[in-house]
């Protein structure tokens, strides 16, 4: 198996609304692919098509070299929905036993380990749990069978920072064991530490695909020069490698955003008598917004 997920021209349309439009992606086996987009951009619709909850208007989706509706394929997939709903007064423990039994005999040691890691009380009815605790139940259900492919819709939504860290560790463990991970998010920083590749979806269309290395390069491209007095930003505009110059900070500072080599900017700053220089890490969410602005254009 080369591709854990493969879609070709995947399209879902309801009347005039095109929720997913001509989506073609390939996720390699063992890869962690983050599907990023704003609310309503088509992330969850894509996940629902991968698992055959809804059928494509056009195009195809294959999961683990098979159809998402095939029980033999689903037995190898762990799924976390955006909002986990379980019937009636089902307790977390009953849910683990029931859903676990549909795939195989539940591994009690694995289950106990996950319950302990997430600090969950499994005896309470799921519908009485807080949003965060329901999320824990969903994550344990997704991870308990050691699935080959994890499809996680907004996995850390509702989790506190400590549990987010626990989730990332769990994800890293599964990835180290060879599992493929496909997750959706609208928070770039959330995926920074776990994803290998990012797909940006906007209005149902795949706007960009980048590796995390590409993204990280974009986060380090801001340099702040301090001068003895006010300096005209025009001196940096149009220089090779300079994307933007901002004089909006301290009166004696200029912030230069780079999209290439820093040589010309450094040379000019030296010529103008810069007294100090520091680099600033851009917030990943800023990069996320910039990329969406680019894709809009």
């Amino acid at each position: 198996m080369r591709h854990a997920i493969e879609t070709h021209g995947l399209t879902k349309q309801w009347g005039d609304l095109v929720a997913v439009d001509d989506l073609s992606i390939r996720v390699e086996a063992g890869e962690c692919y983050a599907f990023l987009g704003r609310n309503g951009s088509g992330k969850s619709t894509t996940a629902r098509m991968l698992l055959d909850f809804i059928r494509p208007t056009r195009g195809t989706a294959r999961v683990l070299d098979g159809a998402g509706g095939d029980p033999n394929i689903r037995a190898r997939v762990g799924y976390l929905p955006g909002d986990l709903n379980l019937a009636g007064n089902t307790t977390a423990h009953e849910a683990f036993m029931f859903f676990g039994s549909l795939a195989a005999t539940p591994d009690r040691r694995r289950l106990d380990d996950l319950i302990e890691r997430f600090g969950l009380d499994p005896t309470r009815p799921v519908r009485e749990l807080s949003t965060g605790n329901r999320r824990k139940v969903g994550l344990i259900l997704a991870f308990m069978g050691r699935p080959e492919l994890l499809i996680l819709d907004e996995p850390t939504s509702g989790l506190d920072p400590v549990l987010q860290e626990e989730f990332r560790e769990l994800l890293a463990e599964r990835k180290a064991e060879g599992a493929t991970i496909w997750l959706t998010s609208h928070v770039m920083a959330e995926v920074e530490r776990v994803a290998d590749r990012v797909g940006l979806i906007r209005d149902g269309r795949l706007a960009r695909e980048l590796t995390m290395a590409d993204l990280r390069r974009q986060t380090t491209g801001r340099v702040v020069f301090t001068f003895a007095g006010r300096t005209d930003p025009a001196a940096f505009e149009g220089l090779p490698g300079v994307q933007e110059v901002d004089a909006g900070g301290e009166a004696d500072e200029l912030t230069v955003t780079l999209n290439g080599s820093a040589a010309a900017a450094l040379s000019t700053a030296g010529r103008l008598g810069a007294t100090a220089v520091r680099t600033e890490r851009r917030d990943l969410d800023d990069v996320f917004l910039d990329l969406f602005e680019e894709s809009r254009r």
Binding site: L51, F53, R74, V77, P81, D83, N85, L102, A103
Partner: peptide, 11 residues
């Protein structure tokens, strides 16, 4: 929403 989760399992 409980049916969808059930159908994500091998049934």
């Amino acid at each position: 929403g409980t049916l969808e989760y059930l159908l994500s399992k091998p049934v």
